[in-house]
């Protein structure tokens, strides 16, 4: 059992990569789906608004990309992409911890951003000239996903230098 734990650094690092990609990806899938439903509703009534509502729909997609980025970074640092490396249990656990900010923040910010995007789609359906202002509201939610991405990335880079 102790031998397993001594060699499980890579496992924890891989768990971190999977966690970041999975959680943020789930958030984005829910978010893009929800905004897409609202966008389809508006398009059924006014197809000329396609370009505008598409941007709203894509806003919650970014969290999934951030999760993927963190996942790739971890895989690359632990040698699963581009050559094998020795990863200690501590390093593995640290990579796992580094994935948590984008995993949780990605999940929740994508869901809440989609709610905001749905409301924005409603605004554009009524007042297409207010697109510029309406897009700002869901974009604000993005800030927190970016902050989480930043911390996850800084942590991964820091762990690699240890």
């Amino acid at each position: 059992m102790s031998a397993f734990f001594q060699n499980s650094g890579l496992f924890f690092a891989l768990l971190g990569a999977a966690f970041a990609t999975l959680m943020a990806g789930i958030g984005s899938a829910i978010g893009v789906g929800k905004a897409g439903v609202a966008a389809s509703g508006v398009l059924a009534e006014e197809p000329s608004l396609f370009g505008k509502v598409l941007i709203f729909q894509l806003l919650p997609a970014t969290q999934g990309i951030y999760g993927l980025l963190v996942g790739i970074l971890i895989l690359s640092n632990v040698g699963l992409i581009g050559g094998a490396k020795e990863i200690t249990v501590l390093q593995g656990l640290l990579y796992f911890a580094a994935s948590l900010p984008i995993a949780f923040c990605g999940l929740y910010s994508a869901i809440y951003q989609s709610k905001c995007a749905v409301a924005g789609i409603g605004t554009v359906a009524k007042k297409p000239d207010q697109f510029g202002k309406a897009i700002l509201m869901p974009a604000m939610v993005e800030t927190y996903a970016i902050l989480a991405l930043l911390i996850s990335m800084l942590a991964i880079i820091g762990i690699a230098g240890m």
Binding site: K34, V37, A38, A39, S40, G41, V42, A44, E45, E46, V118, I121, G122, A125, K126
Partner: peptide, 16 residues
């Protein structure tokens, strides 16, 4: 039931 689609369509109809 999720009313997101319905509400989006209603939003446009309200303008009429």
């Amino acid at each position: 039931q999720d009313y997101t689609y319905a509400v989006a369509r209603i939003r446009f109809r309200e303008t009429r």
